[in-house]
């Protein structure tokens, strides 16, 4: 109320997107995260240009070489270039992490909005199922699912997507519960618009922001989970250059050949950290409740 003049003149201008960007840019940590992630993504995309090696090329003569100009991060037990494997591994980890979260968020959004909009028995059934899933620790459940589906990197991704769904269902549902009371949804109801159209046109687009925020925060988590499953032998199988699998073999050599597990760990840490920073920034911008 007290800021009416501001609100009025701000509304007069069609500049929503640049406002988002402006706020994101003001957040320094987010920019740090974005730069780190950007570098890693670019490196992964241009991996063939950046390194002359093949990630799976065995060169027994050069095994366990320390970091040098020809092998920046050294080589592993069969002489593969670790830098190369990390770059190709980034494609797997980041790609699958993002896909896993996209699947989880997409399914969660649909189920959550339907559950929240209709309420009643459907809602009860869905929410109790989700509570059951949430009762298990994420890692244990992901391990069990991955083991049941058979160890492979695709199955690890599916397992992660499945265990992440309930988070998005809850989020979308709670958002739907408040949107359902909003005047624009009520007015759509008075026009006689069918429920599924209301969900598709009004509820989903308006509950997508928190889902995006959660998703950005979760991609880092998903990457860690993929690596963990890889580390435990339930995800990527050798010789795939997956970070978790690399660490799994590498950590045995830590004392003698420190570079072998260290660099994959570092990259895992950097990408997960960068994603968290970006996630925080996105939340600050999209979520009015967290803005100061």
């Amino acid at each position: 109320m007290e800021l009416q003049p501001q609100a009025e003149s701000v509304q007069a201008q069609p500049v929503k997107k640049s406002a988002l960007l402006y706020k994101l840019k003001k957040n320094k940590l987010t920019m740090v995260g974005a730069v780190i992630l950007g570098v890693i993504i670019l490196a992964a995309v241009f991996a063939p240009v950046l390194t002359p090696y093949n990630p799976n090329m065995i060169d027994a003569a050069n095994k366990f070489q320390g970091p040098s100009w020809s092998h920046w991060f050294g080589t592993d037990e069969v002489g593969r270039d670790i830098f190369t494997r990390i770059l190709y591994g980034a494609r797997l980890s980041l790609g699958l992490g993002i896909v896993a979260i996209l699947i989880a968020a997409g399914i969660g959004l649909v189920i959550g909005t339907i559950s929240g909009y209709f309420g009643g028995m459907i809602d009860q059934a869905i929410m109790r199922t989700m509570d059951m899933v949430l009762a298990f620790p994420t890692l244990i459940l992901a391990m069990a699912l991955a083991a049941a589906l058979g160890p492979s990197i695709q199955n690890a991704m599916i397992a992660i997507a499945l265990v992440k769904i309930p988070v998005y269902v809850r989020l979308a549902r709670s958002e739907t519960l408040s949107l359902r009371e909003s005047l624009f949804v009520k007015s759509a109801q008075t026009f006689g618009i069918r429920p599924f159209r209301i969900i598709r046109k009004h509820i989903m687009p308006n509950s997508v922001s928190p889902v995006i925020i959660q998703g950005t925060l979760d991609v880092g988590d998903a990457i860690l989970l993929i690596a963990t499953l890889g580390f435990l032998g339930l995800g990527a199988q050798p010789p795939a250059p997956e970070w978790g699998a690399m660490i799994s073999i590498g950590w045995k050599y830590l004392l003698d050949f420190w570079w072998y597990p260290t660099f994959p760990c570092l990259f895992l840490f950097l990408s997960a950290g960068a994603l968290n920073l970006i996630g925080d920034g996105v939340r600050d911008v999209l979520d009015p409740r967290s803005s100061r």
Binding site: S182, L183, F184, K186, S187, A188, T190, F191, G192, I193, R194, R197, K201, H202, P205, N206
Partner: peptide
Amino acid sequence: QTVFQDPQSSLDPRMTIKEIIIEPLYA
């Protein structure tokens, strides 16, 4: 049809004016 008190909250912020105006036709 109804016209509500608060046009701020009775219009979906994520729809264009065109989409908003033709919405009732979907019934």
